[in-house]
Design a protein around this nucleic acid. Structure first.
Ligand SMILES: [Mn+2]
Ligand SMILES: [Mn+2]
Ligand SMILES: [Zn+2]
Ligand SMILES: [Zn+2]
Lengths: 147, 147
DNA sequence: ATAACCGTTTAGACTTAATCTAATTTACGT
DNA sequence: ACGTAAATTAGATTAAGTCTAAACGGTTAT
């Protein structure tokens, strides 16, 4: 796990190369942003952040990159209410709490959840991944709702 | 659990009234359709099905109804790849398997999965619901992919 | 039954996340 | 350096879902 800027650079480049992707400034910027911002940003937020200093990535490229990273298993896509996909770097597996009122998304460590699937399913499907979304009211919205 | 048409009619009407909703032909049609079609249809599919005989529900009404039923806890919304929400009547809790290749959505009985959340979360959030999505390749796509 | 109220329905315009396209640029192996 | 396949781009396009203001119709009270 990289600690300083140089290590992050090498890690990001290594991850891209390992996924068979050319290392472009755009891809670097997107993956570097996701590495240092675990806030489940939307594609639009990523585009804005990445283009803050020197505009360098078009919308199409941001989407292309995110899809490539997703297929490479480096990035998780979160589909939620509102039809806006959010993106999350996949450094270690974790689940999510989502507040139904304010939309807050919070990581939930796997240790706080015990999920055991009786696998493989009888149907012959191959299970690759288990996404758990805990829904409810965050502490803040709870206060408001409970009065 | 209703068995014949008349019982279904009474059940559907009762559910609507219990949710504080007026019983309109449009709402009846949507809920009745979801009762008898557990295929995770999209709003568009529901609209088409409901309007097959006598057009009676506009797009806005289909969405209004689905949202009302969702808020009443009668209908579950499934957000997935492609930004198209799918709807599922909530008769008994269950989870879902989704094939990443062909998009197949299959119910997974809760008995096949043991999910235990160490709750409540320390954060003070109120947990209301646990959605589990099992992702992978369905038997059919598995064969194609594995050659 | 009648009336009146307010929740519900409606068509169609509108918003916007995401995709598509075809021309241009660029990373990288040789 | 060069050549080529891969990647980027601006802008048009698609389509899921929302919004609006006018008309309608369940429900309840009389
Ligand atoms: Mn996360
Ligand atoms: Mn289901
Ligand atoms: Zn909240
Ligand atoms: Zn499949």
């Amino acid at each position: 796990m990289p600690r300083n800027d140089k290590q992050v650079r090498l890690w990001v480049e290594g991850q891209l190369r390992a996924a068979g992707l050319k290392v472009t400034p755009q891809r670097y910027a997107v993956l570097d942003y996701l590495w240092s911002n675990r806030t489940h940003p939307t594609a639009e937020e990523i585009e804005a952040a990445v283009n803050q200093r020197f505009p360098c990535a078009s919308r199409a490229t941001v989407y292309n990159t995110l899809h490539a990273l997703h297929e490479a298993g480096l990035v998780q896509e979160l589909y939620g209410q509102g039809g806006v996909t959010r993106y999350d770097i996949k450094v270690e597996p974790h689940h999510h709490f989502i507040c139904r009122r304010c939309g807050l998304i919070e990581d939930v460590k796997v240790e706080r959840l015990s999920v055991k699937a009786r696998l493989p399913l009888q149907s012959g499907h191959r299970v690759e991944e288990l996404d758990v979304v805990i829904r409810g009211l965050c502490a803040k919205c709870r206060k408001i709702a409970e009065g």
